[in-house]
């Protein structure tokens, strides 16, 4: 039995190495004093990070991405609050079908969605740009937001609302005083996850972004120039750091939400 256990452990280690080793290479090369991405390392430098500051296009791309991700997070989360509340609290005709359709983009090949949207936008004569990316990203982020928020609304005891109502509050003040504070961790978690997904989304941004590149699109365009690659590594290192911080914050709020409502942790995205 012991050897079998060791075999499984080896498998697990290999699996994790395959998953994360490439990501660990990013920071290593971003501090490497050489333009060629290969071992052996040449020496330690921070000049690639310094170079980042001089690239105007890069700055524009980062600003574009922040605008897109911020707007997407707010839009998707707002829409998801309505959907999650409706699906967890009310019974109505066709609820299952409606929820399935809303959640479908989660598994739909993104390239198909991107192509379809592009064709329609061109037919309608809508100018491509940040607005169209925001709409596309909202489409793909909303299912994630609903999944997170449904869990938050689900763990809410219905009698909490009734108790507040019974104690003299109206429907709106009950929502504000009881429901909102209790699902707030879920809302924050949803905002952060949507933000993160939108931030590194490439296909839609490339298809329907027109001449306004987001950060992933910009990075891809720079890969054609070998001398730019170390700078890209530095950018990517920053991105990884930001992503990890955001996800940790999101998970922190999700767990705090579960603890607050006294629910049982059934596991989230992380």
């Amino acid at each position: 039995m012991k050897s079998q256990g060791n075999g499984l452990r080896l498998y697990a280690i290999l699996y994790l190495a395959f998953l994360y080793a490439p990501i660990f290479l990013l920071p290593i090369f971003s501090f490497n004093d050489g333009t060629i991405i290969a071992f052996p390392l040449k020496g330690f430098t921070t000049k690639w990070f310094a170079l980042m500051a001089e690239k105007g296009q890069l700055h524009q791309a980062v600003i574009n991405s922040l605008i897109v991700a911020g707007s997407t997070a707010i839009l998707a989360t707002t829409l998801a609050i309505f959907a999650a509340r409706a699906s967890t609290r009310f019974e109505f005709r066709g609820k299952g079908a409606i929820m399935a359709m809303i959640m479908l983009p989660l598994v739909l090949p993104e390239i198909i969605v991107a192509m379809a949207i592009l064709v329609i936008l061109l037919q309608m004569g809508v100018g491509l740009g940040l607005t169209t990316i925001i709409l596309g990203h909202t489409l793909i982020c909303t299912p994630f937001a609903i999944a997170i928020l449904s869990a938050a609304f689900q763990s809410l005891d219905k009698s909490l609302e009734e108790a507040a109502y019974d104690l003299g509050e109206g429907k709106f003040s009950t929502f504000r005083l009881i429901i909102l504070p209790l699902v707030l961790p879920g809302i924050i978690s949803s905002l952060l996850i949507s933000f993160t997904i939108s931030m590194d989304e490439f296909i839609l941004a490339a298809f329907i972004g027109g001449t306004s590149p987001t950060l992933p699109v910009y990075i891809y365009s720079q890969l054609r120039f070998p001398k730019e690659i170390p700078v890209i590594m530095a950018v990517a290192t920053c991105l990884v750091a930001v992503s990890i911080v955001l996800l940790i914050i999101a998970e922190y709020f999700r767990r705090r939400g579960v603890a607050k409502t006294g629910g049982k942790d059934s596991g989230g995205f992380l």
Binding site: D157, S159, L160, E162, A163, D166, L167, I178, L182, K260
Partner: peptide
């Protein structure tokens, strides 16, 4: 319910956590 002269103790107690 919020205008009736009744108040309720719920089975789950419904304490605002």
């Amino acid at each position: 319910a919020n205008k009736r002269p009744t108040n309720m103790v719920f089975q789950s107690y419904a304490i605002f956590p």
